[in-house]
């Protein structure tokens, strides 16, 4: 029985979500798919569909309106998965830190595996970060990874895990606390 795990890093399919960035990093992600940098060399496909993705590229500090979507998309990705925070503002909030409508970085909501700093991130850095993410991907297990906030424990009936309602709406968590 050969090891299936080693194929994970040969076929990373990415999902990209803009959680409030200035477009700079998003454009660079697009540019890194283009001929000069050609991410597809590594087998990268931009699927745009969380259910078929392995790597979650998040750009931007998380604005208040994008948090639910971020968590929802994260929960819809099958394990093993890797989250890459692209750009300074998704790492720490960057220049937007402490503005009234931002949450200072992706890692307040979901566990981040690779941080790529830079404003804006250059395609070389994105490629480097992705490749490092692949190393992490290989080590991961298929345990369910949970968001840090806006999360309700998923129910389990007859051994079947139900993930339908795991990502909460913002209002609900306020009621709970």
């Amino acid at each position: 029985m050969f090891n299936l795990k080693k194929y994970r890093k040969k076929s990373p399919w990415i999902l990209h979500y803009n959680a409030g960035s200035c477009n700079g990093c998003d454009i660079e992600i697009l540019a890194s798919l283009a001929p000069k940098y050609d991410l597809e060399r590594f087998g990268v496909v931009n699927t745009g569909n969380p259910k078929q993705s392995d790597i979650f590229l998040v750009t931007g500090p998380v604005t208040l309106r994008s948090r639910e979507r971020l968590v929802e998309l994260y929960m819809q990705m099958p394990e093993p998965k890797v989250v890459v925070a692209v750009g300074s503002c998704s790492c720490t909030g960057g220049v937007f830190r402490d503005m009234y409508n931002v949450e200072d970085g992706v890692d307040r909501y979901i566990p981040v595996d690779v941080y790529i700093p830079g404003c804006a991130v250059s395609p070389e850095l994105i490629i480097d970060g992705l490749v490092q993410g692949l190393e992490i991907l290989e080590q991961k297990t298929k345990e369910m990874e949970k968001p840090l906030k806006l999360f309700k424990e998923s129910t389990c009936e007859e051994g079947i895990v139900n993930r339908r309602d795991t990502a909460l709406k913002v209002g609900k968590i306020d009621e709970k606390n």
């Binding site: 803009n18 409030g20 960035s21 931007g60 500090p61 604005t63 309106r65 994008s66 979507r69 937007f96 503005m99 009234y100 409508n101 931002v102």
Partner: peptide, 8 residues
């Protein structure tokens, strides 16, 4: 969706 409050 991307309102960050830059003006403020």
């Amino acid at each position: 969706f991307v309102h960050r409050g830059i003006e403020r």
